[in-house]
Design a protein around this nucleic acid. Structure first.
Length: 278
DNA sequence: CACGAGACCTGTTCGC
DNA sequence: TGCGAACAGGTCTCGT
């Protein structure tokens, strides 16, 4: 469930305290970690549980941010990084609340509420590190980075002889896009997901960067997307134009939307608006 | 460098 | 109704 807009929404909500189940709806900034529990050891990528507990207990949350799809919680001395992968979610509940079914890592805050990393599929990971660059160094630019001009983006595309969709999913090329927002951006830019990056025209490259930013901005404005049984209050799923709409008419030209596996991922596109290059 | 397959996991939905 | 297959918002590693 988590692509850039969903992680951004979570980070903002934790900062402002706009969290539905939280007892007092107070910001997490300034909260002290008074206890912690690791319920599924593999969720904690580093360090080992014993060192993790010993280091994190007593620290206060000072800043909450995001880089790519990573949630970043800056503490007094360390940074807690969380990647939600496919099914992760963050909940804040009162301390009295019993642990939920798939809670994997729980932090008790000020002895009265708890922040739980819940993750059905157990793909998610958390790291407690001094320097987050240890983990984040390989990420490509943020989509909204002002240094990422259309010209710069175009020149990055021209260096890559690779299908555009898998390239956009590659976090070392650009950080934050996942399967949904990639399909939506390519549709809005009218680019076929299999077109080789190096063959995109300047106009297509500029259009694509614009579409990526538009789609991510719209996603954030809707508080992200909520699909299936995982619901966090986002509404962007109602604005999907192609994702999950195979067989339905294209909103632009009414041709049937197609679904095809590209790089092992279900890919949705309009065969007429996004013509397949020879 | 690029690509596909397989792993890692659990749960829901689809097709017969 | 039941049961297996397919599928799911992600990423890593390995072999070609």
């Amino acid at each position: 469930m988590p692509e850039l807009p969903e992680v951004e929404t979570i980070a903002r909500n934790l900062r402002t305290g706009n969290i539905s189940e939280s007892p007092d709806r107070e910001s997490l900034i300034g909260a002290q970690i008074t206890a912690a529990e690791v319920l599924w050891p593999r969720t904690l990528a580093a360090p080992e549980t014993a060192e993790f507990l010993q280091r994190i207990i007593g620290q206060r949350i000072r800043r909450i941010g995001r880089r790519g799809k990573y949630l970043m919680m800056h503490l007094d001395r360390d940074v807690l990084l969380i990647h939600l992968r496919m099914s992760g979610d963050i909940r804040v509940v009162s301390r009295a609340e019993p642990a939920a079914n798939h809670d994997r890592l729980v932090l008790e805050l000020d002895g009265r509420r708890r922040l739980a990393f819940n993750d059905t599929r157990k793909f998610g990971r958390a790291w407690l590190v001094v320097d987050p660059e240890e983990i984040l160094a390989g990420l490509g630019p943020e989509p909204f980075d002002e240094h990422l001009s259309p010209d710069r983006f175009i020149s990055l595309l021209q260096k890559r002889r690779r299908q555009i969709k898998p390239l956009l999913l590659d976090q070392s090329f650009l950080a934050g896009l996942g399967n949904i927002y990639t399909d939506e951006a390519l549709f809005r830019a009218r680019i076929h997901p299999r077109q080789l990056a190096s063959t995109l025209s300047e106009q297509q490259g500029a259009r694509l960067l614009q579409a990526i930013r538009d789609v991510l901005r719209a996603g954030i404005q809707s508080d992200g997307s909520s699909i299936d049984w995982v619901y966090r209050g986002g509404g962007f799923q109602d604005q999907f134009q192609v994702y999950g709409r195979a067989g339905e008419p294209c909103p632009r030209c009414h041709t049937e939307i197609e679904r095809e596996l590209i790089g092992q991922r279900g890919t949705h596109f309009c065969p007429k608006c996004q013509p397949r290059p020879e």
